[in-house]
Every structure is written in C-alpha cells, then in structure tokens.
Amino acid sequence: MEIESSVSSSKGVPRMRYRFWVPSVALLGAVLALLAHPSAQTRSTPRWPDPVPNRPPIAEKDKKPAPRRSLVGMWGARAGNRQATNQSSGVQLKPNNGRPENQLPYTPYGLELYKSHKPLEGADAVPPAATNDPRVRCEPLGMPRHNHYDLGIQIFQDEYKIAMLYQYDNRWRIIWTDGRPLPTLADGGVEMDGQYREARWFGYSVGRWVDDYTLEVHTVGTMAEGRVWLDNTGRPVSDQLHVIETFRRLDYDSLEWSETLDDPKVYTRPWQTMKMPMTLQDPRIDLMTRYCSPSEIENYNREYGNAVSGK
C-alpha cells in the first residue's frame, strides 16, 4: 500500500516499473523459497500407483536397517506368488495336498469337524454348488483365517496398540501393546479383570516386544467351530484356540510373519501354519476393492458356478 501510494505520485514510467518489479520480485522470492524447501526438491506430482502390492524383494545392496519397535507400513506377500498371497491350497507351511508330511494332528473331534466341511479347495474339494464354506455366505473369515487369505496388510501403531488393516473385505484388528494381560479362556468366551466377555471374530490380542525388532502376539477368545474355518481347505479351529504370532522386522523393507496354533480341542499338539515373508510396499497404494458381496456371489453362481458344477 505504501509503495503504491508513493508510486502514484510519480510519473507514469516509474510507476509502471514498480508495478512490474514489485510483483516479479515477490514471485521470484516465492519460487526460490519453494525450491529451497526439501519437499519441493523430492516430490513430483502425486500419482496413483498400481492398486495392488507388487514390490519385488529388496536386493541385498539396497537393504537398510529396520526401525526400532515399529511395524508401520503397507505390507504385501511376495509379489507374483498367489499361493503365498492367498494360501488357497491351505496354510503356507501345510498345504492340503494329501501328502503325508502335511497331515495334521487331528483329535477325533477335529477330524470329525474336518470331514463335515465341504471346501472349495484342497484334497477334499467339492464343486461350488456343494460347498458349505462360511466364506461363500460372506461370513467374516475371523482369526486366524484372515491371516491366510488375500494378504495385503496396512499396519498403524501408537504407544498403546497396533492396528492391522486387512485387504480382504476391508477388515481390521487391534493388538494391544500397553502391557495388559492376555485374557483367559472361559465358557466359550474369555475372562478379563474378573469379567466375562464374549468371543469375537478376531478374538482378543496382546503383543509384547521380545526385542527391538520382534513382536510376539497372543490371541484367544475367537469364534467357535461352526462359525470359522482355519483355511480355504476346510481345516477346523475351535473356541479353545490360542494363536501365537511373531512379527520379526528383518530390515527396513522385510518382515517375517510366523503363526503357531495351540488348539487342544481339535489338534493333539501345537503346530506352525506359516512363516510368511512380507515386503514393505509403496505407502501411496490405494488398494482395489475386495469386499465380499452376497449379490456378486449370487450373480457369479447364477452365471457360472452352478453350471460348471453340474453334471
């Protein structure tokens, strides 16, 4: 304002110069300030990356140290490996292919449960029209089956908890890391602080840092048999299930996700289901939709599934 008023008292040419130079200098200053800002030097125009996890494993020479006590990031199973991503033939370490080494230590009740299941995958698969997989009715997969299907996991954390966002059906679970004790199994649910709580699809999870790069997670209080399966091949789990997971941050871009089941109602001893290598993905991925929609499944069966199942 002051410049303008002083200029207005001047002759025409100087006034024009001021009008040109003042905004020009200001613009130049703004541009220089922007260029000096680190983000302006490193960021190009934001874009939409491929909407699926697809980053290949990191070369040895590009590996960086892992951050301390952090699992934060978008994680995907090994690129291009559908069996790793979907575990469609059964859990990663024990595919259901009829081989002796992959037979599970069923209790009599566990075996009975398994035989009552009509899965779409595995050694005892049935056609789509004959399945009784709860997934086909869009029932939640629950814990731990969500760990065995369509892996793509976004992890957030704060000082109290870790949140895991699952790609399939946009589900999420919480792991408490604030030191609270694991509830005890009781009457189909759990007991905590002297109170009874009902079973839940993802149960109740608590985690403890074993060291700066290893988180051990225990989960109990999951849904009873009849509501959930272990995997796509119809293996069972029960309401007595105790899941032990280990998340090992091997380096900045690599996470090893292990899982062991202790379920004396259906298995005679604990056994390990997976030891999954996960790779850190582009944090800007906006994942494709993979909701379970009853109307889409109905349409698929009408258009295809029933006909391909028929004689």
């Binding site: 995958e121 399945t131 086909v136 599934g305």
Partner: peptide, 9 residues
C-alpha cells in the same frame, strides 16, 4: 490357470 476358480469370494 491357478486356483480352481470356484465360487470363492
């Protein structure tokens, strides 16, 4: 041709 392509959501 991986997976059976069954009615698996």
């Amino acid at each position: 041709a991986r997976g059976r392509g069954a009615a698996a959501p």
